[in-house]
Simulated assay, not measured.
Amino acid sequence: MSNYNAHESAVEETINGAVKGNSIGKRLGIIATCVVGGSLVALYAVAGPFVAPALRKICLPYVPATSVQVENVLKVLRYRSGSLVDIGSGDGRIVIAAAKKGFRAVGFELNPWLVWYSRYKAWREGVHHSTSFYISDLWKVSFAQYSNVVVFGVPQMMEQLEDKLGKELQNSARVVACRFPFPSWVPDDSVGEGIDSVWVYNAKTFQSQAQINQATEK
């Protein structure tokens, strides 16, 4: 009888140990799942606003300008001065680089996270006094006061933006399109290749062409 009881106790201990081990395993699994899930949520919260498109009429994903693109923009503006606006300024690198070259530079961006980050970068780079960043929809802003306009757009918006800038800009203004050219304007110059290409448009040229087109249609 004693042998039977001893055997029974051993079996119970084995079962209890297995149950406890299984319970601990489940708890560890739950903890691990929570940790991984929490990390993913935190990562999305931080990175999501930077990589996801802001809510716009036309979707403009955040794609940072390459260092070559920045150099090309500054190259075609090297003899220019005055005010500069970057439409869809992203993390502010074009605005900050232009400010270092003496421009009074402004960026418009709908994504507030990117605007705050741009302001911080401008402060860190020591150009916060000559830069401004605004949270705004580009279609609700007038660009009439700017003598230099930089655009990082997508094909779906270029025709509409072409019409907007053609009506608003003074004839002394210059427009620099990056990645994609305007559909109707004939560029006065271009620099770079592939993704780093920039096209230069002088307002005097495209406004004169618009007047000719209107006269021809009449």
Rank of each mutant, 00 (worst) to 15 (best):
S136A: 15
E8R: 15
G166M: 05
A177C: 10
N148G: 06
T66Q: 08
L165C: 05
F50V: 14
S142A: 04
L84R: 07
L161V: 09
N202C: 04
T205V: 11
M158G: 08
A105R: 05
V198K: 03
A98E: 04
Y120H: 06
A144L: 01
G166R: 10
Q211G: 02
G92D: 01
V46K: 13
A210W: 03
I58D: 04
G192C: 07
G107H: 02
A97G: 06
T66F: 10
F143I: 03
L74Y: 10
G37L: 13
S130V: 13
N72F: 08
S190A: 12
L169H: 04
I135E: 12
R119Q: 12
L77I: 11
L114C: 08
V63K: 02
K121M: 13
V127E: 12
E13I: 05
F133D: 09
K164V: 08
I30P: 01
F180G: 02
R174A: 13
E217A: 13
S142P: 00
P53K: 09
Q156N: 13
I31Q: 12
I96G: 03
I58R: 05
V200K: 04
P49C: 10
R27D: 12
V35E: 06
P64K: 09
P64W: 04
G48Y: 07
D163C: 11
N5W: 09
R56S: 11
V191N: 01
N213L: 14
I24Q: 13
L138G: 00
P53A: 12
N16A: 13
A203Y: 06
Q160W: 10
A10C: 03
E159D: 09
E13D: 10
K20L: 14
N148Q: 11
G166Q: 08
S39P: 01
A10H: 09
L55H: 07
V11P: 00
F180K: 02
H128L: 11
I195H: 11
V200P: 02
L55S: 09
A65E: 01
R80N: 07
P49L: 09
A173H: 05
Q214V: 09
F108L: 12
Q214S: 10
F206T: 04
F108K: 05
W139N: 05
Y44G: 13
S147D: 08
I24L: 15
S67Y: 05
Y44T: 11
V11S: 05
G166V: 06
A173K: 04
V149Q: 02
T66L: 11
K140F: 01
L43Q: 03
V154Y: 07
F152G: 10
R104F: 06
N3Y: 11
V191R: 08
L77D: 08
W113G: 07
T33C: 15
P64E: 08
I30W: 14
T33N: 12
V186W: 01
A144N: 06
A18Q: 03
G38H: 11
K20C: 02
G48H: 09
K75C: 08
Q211T: 05
W185N: 02
R174P: 00
M158H: 09
Y146T: 02
A98R: 07
A99E: 07
W113Q: 11
A210P: 00
A52Y: 10
L74W: 10
Y79I: 01
A45H: 12
K140C: 06
L138H: 00
